[in-house]
Design a protein around this nucleic acid. Structure first.
Lengths: 219, 219
DNA sequence: CCCCCTACAAACCGCTTGGTATGTACCAAT
DNA sequence: ATTGGTACATACCAAGCGGTTTGTAGGGGG
């Protein structure tokens, strides 16, 4: 055969690794993890199997890395970034986050839903390590909300008779459920409506400042 | 048995069809639709490919039938059966449904989540017909809740300043999200806590009475 | 009785899959 | 200049996939 050079670009293993992670994320986001083809990922990344199996022992490890190094950061940025930067009380700040999410929806987000939730629903029952990686990301999310609420409780802007961690878990669940339903219905308006409702629920977390306490549970 | 015949059981095409649907449901529920192997389904059903492809044109059609003839009915029975049978006001009835769901959780439900939601999340972006079948089931669910709330609005047991359909969608979303998060966290207590929170949210749907509150006690 | 269509069983097929084996260009250390 | 490990590319493989083809037992209608 001829001497034809195959122009091997200068070595940059970390760049290759990130190209793999990005391509894997995109493919997994569209097709799901199990249905995501390694060949499709490699084509998208512009590398070959040699590169993949040099950086990752197998497909599962690539999936774990996608969760830890791509999806987790993306989610925390989206849901905690604005929250932790805000100086408002946590209820208001959370409502701002919800409104900002509702205002900046993309078509892809409606169609494909939340990448973390997708992987959670698909892989949690099938791969315990997958489940733990995903749950760690969810826990970070819940903790971010819980810390904000606890701060509000300390500052007196959030009712003290609620369990901040339980409320945080509920808010995350309601948000994920809303994304999921909207994805199934292909309806951005349904998602917006649900996020608005969730904001209304948060309103009930503000302390009641009328004289005397009201009990929501009968006598 | 001198003859050693391969006892071909008497013809019962509808029985065969239901065995296929049941087996397909179980396999899809565990592995997801795409990862569900036809061979595994057939082994579970105790029939062969000839039977499958006699009753269904392809794998997708089997999936649609599972949604329409298995999952949809299961879901509506679980979430609307008790609701529509109840004579209480819709808020109370919905709270009863949530409590009943929380009380009758199985280990499999925690591990595998909601079968309809699983299929919705996996297949909605990949197959438009799948999405429509799934969405029809979700719509029936939302409509069931919405009708109950509208009845309550007509009877004066539910606030009239809320959009019953939007509230219904939110409740379904919150419930599904709760199942999903609990599945990822493998936590029955988290699911129960979330369902309880959702019940608390429903409490806010009761009409506000300026002079004292309603003190009608049921059960 | 004899059809003959229904309701399967069994064998088979092309293709894709995740994973491996092997070869080689790059580059820092010697 | 030689070496040697790193960072890939290429070719290959067995297994499993959804789907098709072919054969045939069952049983109601004539």
């Amino acid at each position: 055969m001829a001497k034809g050079r195959v122009k091997r670009r200068t070595r940059a293993p970390d760049v290759t690794r990130e190209k793999l992670l990005k391509a894997a994320f995109e493919e997994v986001y569209r097709r799901g993890f199990q249905a995501a083809s390694l060949d499709a990922i490699l084509a998208r990344a512009g590398v070959t199997k040699g590169a993949l199996y040099h950086h990752f022992p197998d497909k599962a490890a690539l999936g774990y890395a996608v969760v830890n190094e791509v999806v987790k950061g993306l989610l925390l940025k989206r849901w905690l970034g604005l929250l932790e930067a805000s100086t408002a009380d946590p209820v208001t700040a959370l409502q701002q986050v919800l409104r900002h999410r509702a205002a900046s929806l993309t078509a892809g987000e409606i169609e494909l839903g939340c990448p973390l939730n997708n992987m959670a629903q698909e892989m949690s029952p099938l791969d315990e390590r997958f489940r733990r990686h995903v749950d760690a990301a969810f826990e970070a999310w819940r903790n971010g909300f819980a810390r904000a609420l606890q701060r509000g409780q300390a500052e007196g802007t959030v009712r003290r008779d609620v369990d901040a961690r339980k409320v945080a878990a509920f808010v995350v669940a309601a948000a994920e459920g809303s994304y999921g339903l909207a994805k199934g219905a292909r309806s951005a308006s349904m998602l917006r409506s649900n996020l608005e409702m969730l904001g209304g629920f948060l309103e009930g977390l503000r302390p009641v400042r009328k004289a005397g306490r009201r009990s929501h549970r009968g006598d």
